[in-house]
Design a protein around this nucleic acid. Sequence first.
DNA 1: CTACATCCTCTAGCGACTAGAGGTGCAAGA
DNA 2: TCTTGCACCTCTAGTCGCTAGAGGATGTAG
Lengths: 140, 140
Amino acid sequence: MKKITIGDASRQSGVKVPTIRYYESIGLLAAPSRSGGNQRSYEPADLRRLVFIRHARELGFEVDAIRTLLTLQDDPHQSCASADAIAKARLADVEQRIRSLMALKVELETMVEGCGHGRVDQCRVIEVLADHAQCTHSHH
Amino acid sequence: MKKITIGDASRQSGVKVPTIRYYESIGLLAAPSRSGGNQRSYEPADLRRLVFIRHARELGFEVDAIRTLLTLQDDPHQSCASADAIAKARLADVEQRIRSLMALKVELETMVEGCGHGRVDQCRVIEVLADHAQCTHSHH
DNA sequence: CTACATCCTCTAGCGACTAGAGGTGCAAGA
DNA sequence: TCTTGCACCTCTAGTCGCTAGAGGATGTAG
């Protein structure tokens, strides 16, 4: 069997080399065996784990949540209630973020549209920032 | 005129006390005069600046962008092209974020809906994370 | 005068990496 | 065989925008 170096693992998983070492240092990925001159040598299972982690990070899961998801994956006979709860919490968070970003978008659009491209003292961008009362939304 | 302590400034601007000191340390807010036993004493103009900063932060502007916006505000005869550009860049960023969060939401919803609340080996949450090919969207 | 809140400075920590220094290992071409 | 040059190693420090805490000084109310 050919040995998988950290560089190969990086290319095959899409996780950068220093990030792989970082994941090892925080215990998200088990330390692999070393071959020859102290170089890390990975197994296919490690690659799958890295892809899992990358995908979860792309979905915005925090490292702690991923830690839990990984232990669940390691023991497939457990109830998946925890995984479900984590995903639901993340979904709620994403929905909340979308709501505030939408409000923010409206506010920024008003600012940009109101800018007459003249001097700063007529600029709505600066004006709105200086005087919160001018906001269309007052939720923040 | 009564002296405005850092605590008053905090209450009136909505910026926390350590954050005000932090803003001073990074040069976002000028160091105020000190009165008596070395305590900071603010002017009304400082309060307006703090509100400006807080509002800009709430809109997601980075400290560097705020620095530029503040220098623009200080010189109202300048062209507001920079302010406009900063706000437009921020708007584009917000729109991009909304788009990716929407895609993410769809993916999370699929995961959560697909969870049969049984054991982990039938859980779609874990499954989707382990195998990226199962994503409805493939942009990431 | 005594509490007690508020202020001061300074350092360290958060999350999730990223960058760089300074050194070793390894495979391929001359 | 030697050398070139990339990939690897460890370690520390930096990123961003704060936040927390230690340890001490000051200000105010009763």
